[in-house]
Amino acid sequence: MKWRGQVAPAERRDPVSSTMIDALFEKILKKSLSRREFFKLNAGAALAAAAGGFPAMSPRDASAAAAPNIAVVTGSPGAATRAAVEMLGGMGAFVKKGSKVVIKPNMSFARGLESGTNTHPEVVRELVAMCRQAGASRIRVLDHPLRPNELCIQEVKDACRVFGDDRMVHALEDKEFYREVAIPGARTFKKTDVMRDVLEADVLIAAPVAKSHSSTGVSLSMKGMMGLIYSRDVMHYLHDLNTAIVDLCSFLRPRLVVIDGSRVLSTNGPGGPGKVLRMDTVIASRDMVAADAQAVSMFEWYGRHMEPRQVKHIRIASERGLGRMDLSRLNVGKKSV
C-alpha cells in the first residue's frame, strides 16, 4: 500500500475542476437554505439540552428526512469529507462569510500516513477548501504536537500548499501564542492556556483521526482538544484525565466535528505503531460526543466491539449534557461516495 501516493501534489490539481466544485457547491448551498433555518432551531434545542436536561424534542421526531445528527460516509478521504459535511447542511451552515476558522487535526506525530497517528491530509485540505468556499476570511490549521513540530505537520502543510497561504498550517509550541482562560463550570480543570487563534476564532472545527489511546480508551474529537492548550501536564498530574478532558470540552466546543476514519489505529494508540484498519470512512456531526460515540461503536478496538459508555470521558460528557451518546436514538445518515 502506498498511502503517501494518495495525496495529490499541488501541481497535479486541475484548476478548472476546483472552480467547477465551487459552482456546484454554490448550488447546493442555495438549495439547503430552508434547511439551514431548521438547523438553527435544532442548534438552539441542543444548546438548551446542554444547559439543562434532556432535549424536549429529539430531532428524529421532528424530521427524520432532514439532516442527520451524524453523517457516516465511506469513500476516499477528501470526497467522503465533503459528502459528510454536505449531509449536515454544507459548510455554509457552520462558516459564514468573513468567519475566522480554526481547524484542529491530529498532527502530533511524524510517523507517516500509514501509521494512522495523524489526520489524513486530504481530509484537512477538503475542509479548508469548503471553508474558503463558504467565505471564511481567515483559516488556520493548528495543533500543539509532542515531537519536533516541523516534521509532524509536514504532510498537512504540503497538502494545504494549494491554497497559497503559507501562514495557514502551524504547530504552536511557544507559550506566547497562548492566553490563559478560566473554564466556567469546570469540575476540576478550572483554568488553562488556550491558543490565542482559537479564542479569537468564530468557528472551531475538530478534525481528529480515529485512534485508540491506552489511557483514555480512544483519542477522538474530545481528547483532541488537548492539542489546543499549552500545558497538558496538569491534566495528567493534578486531575483525573477523563474528567479534565470533559471540563476542557465544555469550554472548547467545536461547531463541527469531522472524524477521519480512513485509517483507524485500532491498537497501540495514540503513538502506535499498532494495528491499522483501513475503513475509508468519515464521520461528521455538530455534536462532538455523538461523533466520538459513533466512532467508538462502529470501529473495532483491540479486536473487539466497544460501547461508547465504556469510554469514560464520553460517558461523563453525556451525563453532563455536553452531547449525546445514545446512538440508537440519534439519526445516523449513511452514504457511500
Binding site: S212, G217, N268, Y302, M306
Partner: peptide
C-alpha cells in the same frame, strides 16, 4: 510497536479489556 496489549495471553490484563476502556 511497543509490547502492550499483546494478544492472547491475558497475563497483563488486556486480554479482558483494551487499555483505557471501562
Amino acid at each position: 510497536p511497543s509490547a502492550y496489549g499483546e494478544e492472547g495471553n491475558g497475563e497483563n490484563g488486556f486480554g479482558k479489556l483494551p487499555p483505557g476502556f471501562d
